[in-house]
Amino acid sequence: MCKSIFLSELGWKPFFQQQLSLDEWETVHTARVMAQHRSQLALMTESGEQNLPVTANMPPLTVGDWILLSQTNQFVRQLERSSLFSRKAAGSKVDSQLIAANIDTVFIVCSMNNDFNLNRIERYLTLANEAGVEPVIVLTKADLCDDPAQYVQQVQQLDPMLMVEAVNGLEPDSASVLSSWCRHGKTVAFLGSSGAGKSTLINTLQGSEIQQTGGIREDDSKGRHTTTSRSLHLTPAGGLLLDTPGMRELQLADCEQGLDTTFADISLLAEQCRFSDCQHNNEPGCAVQLAIANGDLDERRLNNYHKLNREQAFNGATLAERRANDRAFGKLCKAYQKEKRRQKNG
């Protein structure tokens, strides 16, 4: 059993406190979801750790959520989230998958080797910007890279205002540049593909090996999965770190605002195009194509923007159709039950 802890150490803020009624202050206690398993949730309360069985009457929950428990430790309700990361479920399944909730900062982790990928960084940035969470690009394996500065420069060209740090995740002194985001009560999520060094960084910032780590394949510099589930960890400095399994298939859905923020340079150029519905291909008077011709915009960036835009629009429409079908089926079931009751009472 864990020693008692203050809610502020778990990330409790006025945003959550204001959601409780006076009655609830006296009859319930709060808990944060620290890990999610198939049939139960690992929670942390002021009194310490406890498990909560997942039941059918509970809403979909994810790591980082705040919930209210009764005096007998039964689920009461979920508190509104300050931020939420989600994606389209992997594979052909038409559904959305919750990744993490109530995050303050996201470390987008990418290694400085053959697996370095600007397109993937832009994909993660879109997810972070859609969630309204501060992104920090963390470039790892600086000890194995001859010229870290050139990788930092490439990322900085995406947006001069982006925070970018190059680190050796094995060295505490190198990783200490990230400590300002991991201070008391702050929740930081680590996103990135397998082998990028997320678990190694968490272990270094934690000061102990709490996450299993693995090497990378020498033939393509791609990593092996080591983290298999999402979990929150308290740090000695008082922050909370959330590791996530490597996600190469990160399908976007309903991320229009996140895309506009991530590709703000393209959105700004689009306002100068001759036609308001310009697709930035071969239309006359296209300011975006002119910027590419002048060397002010990378064609790779425009191509990725088009790709992500098509993807999020398609997946968003598919999910919307699924939700509409679910609502229609629910109404049909209610109508059937109502008719059965009418016949029984008639």
Rank of each mutant, 00 (worst) to 15 (best):
I5C: 07
I5T: 10
S8Q: 11
S8R: 11
L10V: 00
W12C: 01
K13H: 12
F15M: 04
Q17E: 15
D23M: 10
T27C: 03
V28H: 06
T30M: 15
V33Y: 01
A35D: 12
Q36T: 12
Q36L: 14
H37R: 11
R38F: 10
S39M: 07
Q40T: 14
M44Q: 15
E46H: 06
E46P: 04
N51S: 14
L52D: 09
V54S: 12
T62C: 15
L68R: 05
L69Y: 08
L69D: 10
T72L: 10
Q78K: 13
Q78H: 13
L79N: 04
L79S: 06
E80M: 08
S82I: 03
S83L: 01
A90K: 14
K93M: 10
S96Y: 13
I99W: 03
A100G: 08
I103S: 01
V106N: 00
F107W: 04
C110I: 04
C110K: 09
S111P: 12
L118S: 09
I121H: 06
Y124P: 03
L125Q: 03
T126F: 02
V138M: 01
K141D: 06
A149L: 08
Y151G: 03
L158P: 06
P160V: 07
L162Y: 04
L162I: 05
M163S: 12
M163F: 05
E165S: 07
A166I: 03
V167L: 12
N168S: 14
A175K: 01
S179H: 08
C182R: 00
C182A: 04
K186N: 11
T187Q: 09
V188Q: 01
F190L: 15
A196T: 06
G197T: 00
K198Q: 02
G207D: 01
S208R: 09
S208M: 05
Q211A: 15
Q212F: 06
T213Q: 02
T213A: 01
D220S: 08
R224V: 13
T228F: 08
L232A: 10
H233I: 00
P236I: 00
G239K: 01
L240W: 01
L240R: 06
M247D: 00
M247A: 07
E249V: 07
E249Q: 15
L250D: 00
D254S: 13
D254Q: 12
D254M: 13
E256N: 10
E256G: 09
F263E: 05
F263P: 04
A264C: 10
A264D: 11
A264V: 12
D265Q: 12
L268E: 13
L268R: 13
L269A: 03
A270N: 07
S276W: 08
S276A: 15
D277F: 07
G285T: 01
A291V: 13
E299V: 14
R301Q: 14
N304W: 12
L308W: 01
R310T: 11
F314I: 13
A317S: 15
T318F: 05
A320R: 13
R322K: 14
F329P: 02
F329G: 05
K331M: 05
L332V: 07
L332M: 14
R341Y: 05
R342Y: 07
Q343R: 14
K344Y: 09
K344R: 11
